[in-house]
Simulated scan of single mutants.
Amino acid sequence: MTTTLPRSALHDTAQWETSPLDLDAYLARIDYRGPLAPTLSTLRELQRAHLAAVPFENLEIVTGGEIRLDLERLQDKLVRRRRGGYCHEQNTLFATVLDRLGFVVAGRSARILMGDDADKVTPLGHTILNVTLAGRQWLVDVGVGNVGPREPIALELGVEARHGHWEYRLERSSLGYWLLRHHRHDGWFNLYQFSDEPYYRADYEEQNYLASHHPDSPFVRRIVAQHNGAEERLALTDLELKIFRPGQAPELQRLDAEALPQILRERFGLVLAPQQEAALLRRAESLVEASA
């Protein structure tokens, strides 16, 4: 049975390719059975459920595949094959779901800092979302790996948000952008900064191509898998696994190449096709050889 919900005349549905969306399949993928009315409570619960089910990862790139942002490819990868993805994939799919449910959702693009000073001008390249509810705007992001917010954050200067054990703050940077910060065991950490300028699917297609092809892109150079959990967060980079717990320094585990597929299955819920797993093992073994 297909879930059918009322549409809002305010929506630019073509921006998100809403009509081909298999909403029931997506909701089953994230194991969500709650209300679907376009309210803040629904938005919060959907974001939590998505993050619990869909990991952040670049394994398609490092095993020789291609990342595409059309809805059919996104649904095949993230929903039917139960894989994960990075920001352009995850937030495009999530925006499409929100649009179908009647939320007013628009695209934005951020400059990733990941600890850098906020006066540093980094390139635009991180897809985020802006959701408007009852005249109030909210930052929504399901695609910034293990450090991102687990719930919507009100787009208001100086707002502080606690998502379970994890804390966030919105400020203004010296460059005049919104600045999202995350409180870690060693203090406030700059995640990214962004403006109110709208961005569209065409912008994300170009950014996605650079992220998945440029030789300096971290997604081309490294094996990446991350999970944004409520109690524990995981970050796999090549053959190092970091485990983050609230208020504690991260725990580091060094992995053997042959252990990688099992770690991906057990810790991230990621099962690769046999040919992809073989390619991943070759990539991991080359890392071991290079470090010898």
Rank of each mutant, 00 (worst) to 15 (best):
A9D: 14
N130D: 08
L101F: 03
H213T: 09
G164Y: 09
A292S: 13
M1S: 02
K242W: 15
I223N: 05
E156G: 07
D117A: 13
R282M: 04
A290L: 14
D196H: 13
A292C: 15
L46Y: 01
G247D: 06
Q47N: 02
G125T: 10
R201D: 03
L74V: 07
L124Q: 14
F244N: 12
F219Q: 03
W178S: 12
G187K: 03
R184L: 12
S291C: 10
D12P: 04
Q275M: 15
Q75K: 00
L191K: 10
P38L: 00
L234C: 02
Q276R: 10
G145L: 07
G64N: 03
T42D: 04
E266S: 09
L191P: 11
E258F: 15
A53K: 03
Q75C: 01
T42M: 05
R265Q: 09
Q275P: 06
T127L: 15
A154K: 09
I67N: 09
E266R: 05
I30R: 00
G64C: 01
R150T: 09
H126D: 03
A161P: 11
E277G: 05
S19P: 11
R184S: 13
G145E: 11
P38S: 05
T122A: 11
H185F: 08
I243N: 12
L234H: 08
M1Q: 02
R48D: 11
G187V: 05
L239V: 04
E160A: 09
G143L: 09
H227D: 13
H182D: 14
V54D: 07
Y200P: 04
I67T: 13
Y32D: 00
G65V: 08
D203C: 03
F56M: 06
H11C: 06
S174T: 15
W166Y: 12
A273M: 07
T96N: 06
L239I: 08
A118Q: 10
D22F: 03
Y199I: 11
R83T: 05
V104L: 15
R73K: 11
G269Q: 04
S8D: 07
A211F: 04
R267H: 12
Y204K: 00
V147G: 15
S173V: 04
S286K: 12
P123R: 02
V271A: 12
Q47F: 09
R245Y: 09
H126W: 06
Q193W: 14
A161D: 12
L179C: 12
R169Y: 05
T4P: 03
W16F: 11
V54E: 05
S217F: 11
L170R: 00
T96Y: 06
Y199N: 11
E258L: 09
N130H: 13
R267S: 06
Q47Y: 01
L27Y: 04
S173W: 06
A278G: 14
